[in-house]
């Protein structure tokens, strides 16, 4: 079987998987793409969030059979060729992560949000980012999404280094 992941075609040996195997474990254990995390196994925490055809999905309950021929993006593919995604830059500028374990999923959910909603309101961020974080990075997640959205806005001057006061 072949999968389209981060713009590349990846071979998935048939003997290592079965069609019901969740994408999470194909990514982590078969393809060694460990940036996508296991948190709960029931789509409740969002640590495993990846994008499939642009949409945020929880890969721990997404069977391999449902993503064949579709475009999968993981945290490893979020950045551009040369520079980080504006969300990643905003995450650094706001010093969002603490332990960091949930952050891949947060970033992928945020990336999907900004694609459909370039200028999200607080309510839209609340509705889209349902990922759990035990360290409590939520206030900075919200702030970083807004900063990235502002950077992505076409009317703004070209991106420069972000400077944000974090404390």
């Amino acid at each position: 079987m072949q999968l389209q992941i981060n713009g590349q075609t990846r071979d998935v040996p048939d003997d290592a998987t079965d069609p019901s195997m969740p994408l999470l474990w194909v990514l982590r254990d078969v393809l060694q793409l460990t940036g996508t995390k296991f948190g709960c196994g029931i789509a409740a925490c969002g640590a495993c969030t990846v994008r499939v055809d642009g949409q945020a999905v929880r890969s721990c309950v997404t069977p391999l059979s449902s993503v064949q021929g579709r475009s999968i993006q993981t945290i490893e593919g979020l950045a551009g060729d040369k520079e980080p995604h504006p969300l990643q830059a905003a995450w650094v500028a706001h010093q969002v992560p603490q332990c960091g374990y949930c952050q891949s999923g947060m970033l992928m959910a945020a990336a999907a949000l900004l694609d459909t909603t370039p200028e999200p309101t607080d309510a839209q961020i609340d509705a889209a980012i349902t990922n759990l974080c035990r360290c409590g990075t939520y206030p900075r997640v919200r702030a970083a999404i807004k900063t990235a959205a502002a950077q992505l806005r076409p009317t703004r001057p070209p991106r420069g280094p972000l400077r944000v006061k974090t404390a």
């Binding site: 460990t34 995390k37 979020l78 980080p84 960091g100």
Partner: peptide, 23 residues
Amino acid sequence: RQPLRTDVPAKVNGTAVFGMDVK
């Protein structure tokens, strides 16, 4: 002062190694 945390870059690009990422 407030230098940038050294662990953050790896935590936003998926390369940070947690217990389950050891292979």
